[in-house]
């Protein structure tokens, strides 16, 4: 709890305490913690003297501001119409099959979280997804399997 307080205070010192600083502060929290916890939101409300509901409203508006704990790798699949036409549903099915979780869930080992997101600006190269900050485009189910496999190999190198 104290850590959260300190972190938010630091961010507010850094960015300022007026309402327009809410977004950078929330982004700062996500950068450090991967998601914005209830406690963190209360602290932000306190620092900026705005209502906690408003902080929650802003945090839930943006798909890149997580409000639930996430795995180490957050996979965001573009849900918009161009990627839909290019077959994003197959991509999602493949991800769900390989990871054995549903959309919105996190794997038991806390390695992967699966999310949908709004347009990634890769409409010409759909279907597209983002893993943490790295974009992957022109996806096929096979490609998806390989990408996940590569990450697992980094995380659990064969001994």
């Amino acid at each position: 709890m104290e850590d959260v307080k300190l972190m938010v205070k630091e961010l507010a010192d850094n960015y300022g305490r007026s309402e327009e600083n809410l977004l950078p502060i929330l982004q700062g929290i996500v950068e450090r913690e991967k998601y914005i916890s209830e406690e963190a939101m209360v602290e932000v409300a306190r620092e900026l003297d705005i209502s906690a509901a408003q902080v929650y409203g802003t945090a839930t508006f943006y798909s890149f501001l997580e409000t639930k704990p996430t795995g180490k790798y957050v996979i965001r699949v573009c849900k918009t119409i161009s990627c839909m036409i290019k077959g994003k549903n197959d991509i999602i099915r493949e991800l769900e099959n390989v990871l054995r979780i549903k959309m919105g869930e996190t794997t038991h080992d806390n390695l992967f979280s699966l999310r949908e997101t709004n347009c990634l600006g890769q409409c010409h190269k759909g279907p597209a997804m983002l893993i943490n900050d790295t974009p992957y485009t022109e996806l096929t189910p096979e490609k998806v399997r390989k990408i996940l496999c590569d990450i697992r190999n980094i995380e659990f190198p064969a001994n």
Partner: peptide
């Protein structure tokens, strides 16, 4: 000026 209600999600 309570702010118990806000707009969430989109």
């Amino acid at each position: 000026k309570i702010g118990a209600l806000a707009v969430a999600y989109k």
